[in-house]
């Protein structure tokens, strides 16, 4: 054996992936089917985006984003998207404003306290039921509740004295129910993933559980809460059924004279119902506007998805363990 270090040879072969050429026919068909599916899906996505882009941008100008819509037979007189955009933002804001504190409170209670156990199980199950309920069911439930006499302050009374039951309040509150399971789930997972040392250390210093939660745990799970909130926002923005049932109308119309309250008690539309109404399923006389509004909607939702990805990658210690990411993602893909 030579004692001097040997030089590597020059003709070197790199390893290649196993070729499918020699496989039996059935296996080769499966191989090509997998390839076709993968590429096909990518092309499908591209097609959808490009289609929306082309159709949407073919007839518009940015000024439309700041005009209010008006119902009109002629397409050119139907105005812009201002009201629907405001409606979307308003409903989302109300929904998250209610769902976030409530969701975090529930998650904290489930993880940190959770007594009595029967109550905790009941709360868990009910949050799951809400997460699994189709949004249309939540919508008619909401209508049933808000059309009751004692809740007339949240919407308005119709001419014959019955409560209208539809308003930004109503829609926002039911939207909160939509986002709640996502926030609860995300916060809960984040809390459970925290090392027990964190809590032990705090208790060892003589802090109460409440203080620990407030000053130690909650700040640590802020990314988890944010993720849940953004997922919830995505779900709210994309929902049509609740808006259609709980928020009649097209333009934002306030009720009564009080500034903010009047707006919240009033009706309007969101981008989703705007698209629905202007498509052949609704009034159907402005498909180009419907396309553009749909495109704006798509952009908003995609931007939110991007934020979620960014948030989950920013977790301390690098990427979220993949399983947890999948659970969140799975939650978000629930009924919209």
């Amino acid at each position: 054996m030579a004692t001097a270090p040997l030089a590597p040879p020059t003709p070197v072969a790199r390893s290649a992936r196993e070729r499918s050429g020699a496989w039996p026919l059935a296996d080769r068909i499966a191989y090509w089917a997998c390839w076709a599916t993968g590429i096909g899906l990518a092309l499908l996505t591209l097609a959808i985006v490009v289609f929306m882009l082309v159709k949407g941008l073919s007839f518009l100008h940015p000024a439309l984003l700041f005009e209010s819509p008006s119902a009109d037979i002629k397409q050119s007189a139907t105005g812009g998207f201002l009201d629907p955009i405001l409606g979307t933002l308003l409903v989302t804001a109300i929904g998250i404003a209610i769902a976030a504190p409530l969701g975090v409170a529930i998650a904290v209670w489930l993880v940190e306290y959770g007594r009595p156990a029967a109550l905790a199980r009941a709360v868990e199950s009910s949050v799951e039921i809400v997460g699994g309920a189709p949004s249309i069911v939540l919508a008619i439930f909401g209508l049933g509740i808000f059309a009751q006499g004692f809740l007339a302050f949240l919407s308005q009374r119709a001419a014959n004295g019955s409560v209208y039951g539809r308003s930004f309040f109503a829609a926002g509150i039911v939207m909160a129910l939509l986002a709640l399971p996502l926030i609860v789930g995300s916060t809960r997972e984040a809390l459970q993933a925290l090392s027990p040392r964190l809590r032990e250390g705090s208790f060892a210093l003589g802090k109460t559980r409440a203080t620990t939660i407030r000053h130690v745990l909650l700040p640590s799970v802020r990314p988890g809460i944010a993720t849940g909130a953004v997922l919830g926002m995505g779900r709210i923005i994309g929902d049509t059924a609740i808006i259609k049932i709980l928020l009649g109308g097209l333009r934002v119309e306030t009720v009564g004279g009080v500034p903010v309250l009047g707006l919240l008690r009033g009706t309007g539309s969101t981008l989703t119902t705007y698209v629905y109404e202007f498509s052949p399923a609704g009034e159907g006389n402005a498909p180009q506007k419907a396309y553009f509004a749909a495109f704006v909607l798509l952009l908003m939702v995609l931007a939110l998805n991007g934020v979620v990805t960014w948030l989950t990658l920013r977790q301390p210690g690098g990427e979220l363990p993949r399983k947890r990411w999948m659970d969140l993602w799975r939650l978000s893909a629930w009924t919209r």
Partner: peptide, 8 residues
């Protein structure tokens, strides 16, 4: 694809 709202 998962992010596209149903109305779209």
């Amino acid at each position: 694809l998962a992010g596209v709202p149903s109305v779209v």
